[in-house]
């Protein structure tokens, strides 16, 4: 028990942030798994975060009510974004989503009544690590179910080849719209989770930092299975802390180096079901060849 408490004192906040980052990474994964690269998770997080902070601060809403409100807010923002963005070509959509992140920050800075402006907002409610774990577990169950459903199959098809998918009766627009809604809900939850963890938020909270973390986590963990972003967020959050214990002030360097290494050596991330399938096929081929060789020897 003693050692557990010691460990928690040292790494508790890392675990907490890893869980928050996992929500952001899952939100990015939701759209990426249908072939859409979008930074708008940051926007959904801001909507969810400020909404949750205001509802609990001004109206005394408890956690269990503030989280669903944040999810709804994020989902609503996502519906608007999807409606506007899904008509764009994919690379323009990525750029437009980045532009929206910049616009959101400026807007938030200039709306002090809603966001506290430059002074930010104090959040009077705190989320316990256990509550966060439950929230993440719930989200994970949703992604697990999605992966094994017709939606999961259709989104893989749309991601790999949207034109071919459409000739099989799958509407890429519909699949990607639903993906945006999921991204918005999970992003909104992540934003609220961050607000209730930091207990102080400002427009700077929901900015490039989150964008970098969520993209890096998804790339690191892999975007071909829901487990990828969760593992990615855990590694990406823990790595700088553990490295820091060895070599101080290495955080940003370590993050950058890890990201580069992953992109060079594991471009599809740590969790890659396709790589396992390829390995299996290679093994099978080796076995049949060995068998054939043995048969030839037997004949000779």
């Amino acid at each position: 028990m003693e050692t557990f408490l010691d460990l928690w004192a040292a790494y508790g906040s890392t675990v907490t942030f890893a869980m928050v980052n996992a929500l952001f990474a899952l939100s990015t994964y939701a759209v990426l798994s249908t072939g859409v690269l979008s930074f708008t998770t940051v926007v959904f997080a801001a909507v969810g975060g400020f909404l949750a902070a205001q509802l609990s601060g001004k109206f005394g809403l408890p956690l269990w009510a503030a989280f669903p409100a944040a999810a709804l807010g994020g989902g609503f923002a996502a519906a608007v974004v999807a409606f506007a963005f899904l008509r764009l070509e994919s690379h323009w959509m990525a750029l437009a989503s980045l532009a929206l992140v910049l616009i959101t920050r400026v807007t938030a800075l200039n709306a002090p009544a809603l966001t506290g402006g430059v002074n930010g907002l104090i959040v009077p409610v705190r989320v316990e690590p256990l509550e966060l774990a439950i929230l993440l577990a719930l989200c994970t169950v949703v992604f697990w179910r999605l992966h094994r459903s017709w939606f999961g199959l259709a989104s893989r098809a749309v991601r790999e080849d949207a034109a071919v998918a459409s000739t099989m009766g799958i509407s890429p627009y519909r699949i990607q719209f639903i993906a945006f809604l999921i991204s918005g809900v999970v992003g909104g939850l992540g934003g609220a989770a961050l607000a209730f963890t930091l207990q102080f938020i400002s427009p700077e909270t929901y900015f490039i930092g989150i964008a970098f973390t969520m993209i890096a986590s998804t790339v690191l963990g892999g975007s071909f299975h829901w487990l990828g972003p969760i593992i990615g967020a855990a590694v990406f959050t823990a790595l700088p802390t553990t490295m820091q214990a060895i070599v101080p002030q290495i955080e940003d360097v370590a993050k950058g180096v890890v990201l580069l290494l992953i992109m060079i050596f594991l471009p599809r991330g740590l969790i890659d079901p396709r790589a396992w399938g390829l390995k299996k096929a290679a093994k099978l081929r080796e076995e049949t060849e060995a068998k054939r060789a043995a048969e030839r020897d037997a004949h000779a």
């Binding site: 939606f151 259709a154 893989r156 099989m168 009766g169 639903i178 396709r274 399938g277």
Partner: peptide, 24 residues
Amino acid sequence: RLFSGMTALEQVMTGCYLRRGVSL
């Protein structure tokens, strides 16, 4: 133009999308 990363069965399942008979 098969889908990368899908097994043979998954490819054909995807082809069955229109007659899946249930809502998403």
